[in-house]
Design a binder for these strands. Structure first.
Lengths: 299, 299
DNA sequence: ACTATTCGATGAATTTTATTCATGTTAATT
DNA sequence: AATTAACATGAATAAAATTCATCGAATAGT
């Protein structure tokens, strides 16, 4: 009764606002759309839209259909793509999700080798999720989740692929630059630059400052790693990043990594998957490569 | 291209084994099915099944479609039901999920009042989930998750509705019956009866015995609460249950609740929802009722 | 207030698609 | 070798979606 084209119609009209425009986008006449809608509404026995003047507004039923469409259509589309790829001999497509910036930097080192080594596999990297990374995994929006904080829930499994140390970065001329390691109170007079995410998800706060009851002088948010490093080099603040990322930039920039606390903060990047699922070959390829490529792991 | 009926066809054939049987189940002729399949396969450019003798086996593409069908068709069907209910003036349908036995006992006290007070709302209670309760919530298989252990992940929110104490139940004649509270080592010579779930998810182990390094003498698993209480009353073992549940049965059975540790173990049942979602009225009804009904809350 | 314009509705005609009917082919069963 | 169960196929038919031509209602511009 509710067919795929019905979902598409509802979605398109919600998107473009009018039936006529939707008809054009769907390569149909306005008449065809009108007939289709009328038939569906009479089958369901309810209106999907109410006319407010010339505008259309979704009824509750319409909202229900739109919600369904937004959830279901992407999944169908993805399966179709997958099948099309299979048909032309490709091995598949891999949707990688990640929520953390260090993960992203790490992934950049993986995708190159992966793309050249497995040219028949498509890659798609996503970073924003309505229900978080775990939600995306469970909702079949992604196939792998890259995360340093695995959330163990039944039905998901994780594989550690890459360990690194989380360190403070300061300018070479900074007053802390000579230290072997810093204590939380050392940050109380600093401007800490981070990526723009909630502080609770930043290890430097949740695992270093907050437990010691220390507040930083200032907290600045910056989107891009390169600019962030530039700012640190110019003594505009300090930041916390993976050690290998800092060391990769030490030639170009006057920056120094410093251990966070006497023990240091060590993290592991994990790959998360849905369990009980026949893992496609290309996914295993990715895992293999992830484990062996581990950039600068020895440092 | 991939239409709903295609998904249904693949699913049905996978279920009944043969095309002819599937055709019957779908109220179609065998010929109609055959034509439909041939057309789909030629559109996709790949085979969906390979014939092994007289049997059909899914190809990889077929598996992909079947996976999609199993995920997507139930969601469409549920939306259709919902819409049908709306059309006839009903307020909707509420799918409740729960993973824990105490939650189930608690829910039994809620559903009665709910059904009489909101006769136009359908209730559906589910207890087994492929990807856990959180997975079911995120996968739109349920609308509310009842759980004492809320798993905070982005996109979900929880509402505490009912606090209770988790206590040990023993027979009135049991050697521990007079105690005000018990220590973990008191259980080292006992047969502990629990519901059949992994020990890690049982508070009496994870929060009481294991932290103290105590192992119980024996661990028995029983499905139904009534039998479990019977066995406790006959001194066949001890169990851990909500205090109100024990006290509800004290008239009928010779059992006694005992605090677990000096401090006791207190739990809160939470209702979990997807965030950012216009909450339907009936869901608010359920929440309201859940909060006000709190059975035996004062105890 | 009039006009032009945009948007949606409708019935009849037409095209496309799905289904059936009748029959054929193949492989397993007895 | 005969029988049966399962699927394939072509032609005929039924059902559906789509278009065409046209109309009415709401809105913006003058």
């Amino acid at each position: 009764m509710l067919e795929r084209n019905h979902l598409t119609i509802v979605q398109t009209i919600a998107e473009v606002g009018t039936m006529t425009a939707a008809a054009n986008q769907l390569c149909l006449t306005q008449s065809a759309l009108s007939h289709a809608i009328k038939k569906l509404e009479s089958q369901l026995g309810v209106a999907i839209w109410v006319k407010e003047g010339r505008r259309l507004r979704l009824t509750q039923v319409g909202q229900t259909i739109l919600n369904l469409a937004d959830r279901v259509l992407p999944q169908i589309a993805h399966s179709e793509q997958l099948i099309a790829k299979m048909a032309e001999g490709s091995q598949g497509s891999l949707r990688i999700g990640m929520e953390c910036h260090p993960c992203y930097q790490w992934l950049l080192n993986i995708v190159g080798p992966f793309l050249t080594r497995y040219p028949k596999v498509d890659l798609d990297v996503r970073q924003r999720f309505q229900f978080g990374g775990v939600g995306a995994l469970l909702g079949f929006d992604i196939d792998v989740l890259v995360t340093p904080d695995p959330l163990y829930i039944s039905g998901l499994e994780y594989l550690p692929v890459f360990g690194y140390e989380h360190v403070l970065v300061v300018a070479g001329s900074h007053r802390l630059a000579e230290k072997v390691y810093i204590e939380p109170h050392d940050l109380s007079s600093e401007n800490v630059i981070t990526y723009p995410v909630e502080p609770s998800r930043l290890d430097i706060f949740s695992q270093f400052c907050s437990p010691a009851g220390v507040a930083v002088k200032k907290h600045t948010q910056i989107e891009t790693t390169e600019i962030l490093l530039q700012m640190v080099a110019c003594e505009r603040g300090v930041a916390a990043l993976p050690r290998w990322l800092v060391e990769d930039n030490q030639q170009k920039l006057n920056i120094v990594p410093i251990r966070l606390g006497e023990e240091g903060i060590f993290k592991t990047i994990n790959l998360g998957f849905r369990m009980n699922e026949a893992r496609p070959t290309y996914l295993n390829h990715f895992i293999d490569l992830a484990r062996e490529t581990m950039p600068n792991t020895t440092r």
